[in-house]
Simulated assay, not measured.
Amino acid sequence: MLRPATRDELAGLPVEVAPLLLGAELRTVVDGAEVRLRITEVEAYHGRGTGDRPDPGSHARMGRTARNATMWGEPGHLYVYLSHGIHACVNVVCGPEGQAGGVLLRGGEVVAGAETAAARSRRAGRDLARGPGRLGQVVGLTHAAHDGIDAITGSPHAGAVAALRLGPPLAEIASGPRVGVAGVAGTDAFPWRFWIPGDPTVSPFRWGRGAAEAARAL
Rank of each mutant, 00 (worst) to 15 (best):
R134F: 13
W72E: 09
V139W: 12
A144H: 14
R216A: 10
A158F: 13
W195H: 08
R3A: 04
L135S: 05
V29T: 14
T50K: 04
A114F: 01
A215M: 14
V110R: 14
E34S: 09
C89E: 09
I39Y: 04
R206S: 05
R106A: 08
L218C: 05
G131T: 06
M62Y: 14
G95T: 05
G113P: 02
A117C: 07
M62I: 04
L78P: 06
L164F: 02
A44E: 02
I152T: 09
C89G: 10
T116I: 13
R165H: 11
G208I: 01
G95N: 13
G85R: 12
A162Q: 06
D199N: 08
L20H: 12
R53N: 03
D55G: 10
I196D: 04
P96V: 14
L78R: 01
A66F: 03
R61F: 08
A151R: 02
G32C: 05
A160P: 01
G125L: 06
V42E: 02
V179M: 04
R123T: 05
Q137N: 11
A214F: 10
P19C: 09
F205R: 07
A117W: 15
A158D: 07
D188C: 13
A33S: 13
V30P: 05
L78M: 03
G148P: 10
V17E: 07
G183R: 11
P169R: 05
R38W: 12
A151N: 06
A114H: 04
L164P: 06
F194G: 11
P56A: 15
A33W: 13
G131N: 11
P168W: 00
G140N: 15
G49A: 15
G57W: 05
V90A: 02
G85M: 08
S58G: 00
L10D: 01
H143A: 04
E115F: 05
A112L: 08
M62R: 11
H77K: 10
G125V: 11
R27T: 15
G176M: 12
T116R: 11
G154Y: 04
G140Q: 12
N91L: 08
A162N: 12
G12C: 03
A217S: 15
V35D: 00
A69V: 09
E34Y: 10
V15N: 06
A124H: 04
V93N: 06
W192A: 15
R216K: 12
I39A: 04
A144N: 14
R193V: 12
G198M: 09
D147T: 01
T6A: 01
V139R: 07
L21A: 07
G186P: 15
A118Y: 04
L20R: 14
Q99F: 03
V93F: 00
T6I: 07
R122E: 12
G49R: 15
V35S: 00
F205T: 02
R193S: 07
